[in-house]
Nucleic acid binder design. Sequence first.
DNA 1: CTAATTCTTGACTAAAATAGTCGGGAATAG
DNA 2: CTATTCCCGACTATTTTAGTCAAGAATTAG
Lengths: 152, 152
Amino acid sequence: MKLTTRGRYAVTAMLDLAINGGSRPVSLADISGRQEISLSYLEQLFAKLRRGKLVVSARGPGGGYRLARSRAEIFVAQIIDAVDESVDVTNCQGKGNCHQGETCLTHHLWEDLSGQIHEFLSQISLGDLMAKRDPRQRSVRADGMLQTLSIR
Amino acid sequence: MKLTTRGRYAVTAMLDLAINGGSRPVSLADISGRQEISLSYLEQLFAKLRRGKLVVSARGPGGGYRLARSRAEIFVAQIIDAVDESVDVTNCQGKGNCHQGETCLTHHLWEDLSGQIHEFLSQISLGDLMAKRDPRQRSVRADGMLQTLSIR
DNA sequence: CTAATTCTTGACTAAAATAGTCGGGAATAG
DNA sequence: CTATTCCCGACTATTTTAGTCAAGAATTAG
């Protein structure tokens, strides 16, 4: 898991789409104007988001992009994964060298943490962010069920 | 909140320190060897970690670094904050322009999410990562108390 | 049909961040 | 004294980020 400015742009743009996209598509020019992200850069991002099946496009006048599914079914982790191809963290990729070394241990611990962050962001949908009724409430997936946990 | 390779290096190095640091300090040369991070780069990272009061140093032969406090009192968010100075996300920094605009809305939502990630990483200590008795158990701070939540 | 709109693609570029290098110091243990 | 280790600043190479440009394809409005 990586969390860069590009990922932030992507989430921001998708949020804009979720907010401003009703029945009709939203053009990149509109998003560019509202979010102050260069149009060409948005084009690059949306190419990846489209490949990631998160948005669908419509060309021609009145065209643009719309979410590929409902706000509740698009999660932050998916957006970031789509635009930020993940890096390999280990330097002994299953090669089995550095066996029992501290190297493997810390790398494993990091991967574990990274996985937890990913899991965390997999629980937050665009709909959750928009709803935001009570920011101190968050839903946590546990054993397949959704369990509401109030934090802070 | 940003999560880059630099932050990963820092957390990895701090984990190494937590694991290999007993009573005596650990030299950067040792960490460099184990984690395959260049010595000079580690020096830069540890300069920041020291300024962030996360480690203390000891010069001379047998010297090195040790954690500034116990493993249980050093949290991942603190490490990342120390080495990855955060960026400002908004483009209308409280100036009040773009009032009521969609721009402010999405930025606010992003900041909110970013804060949640930060809060999440503020709950995980080096000790937690090391303990890792059952990776499916994680502690979540709620209302000042620690509440154990089993996930997945 | 025509023209304007909008996505689509690829190549290129500027700027910033990342990762690493180098060389000289200062403290300190043995 | 001397080897070790942190400390510091300047410098550099590489990669990533962000943006530009240009040509083209699909589609809709009129």
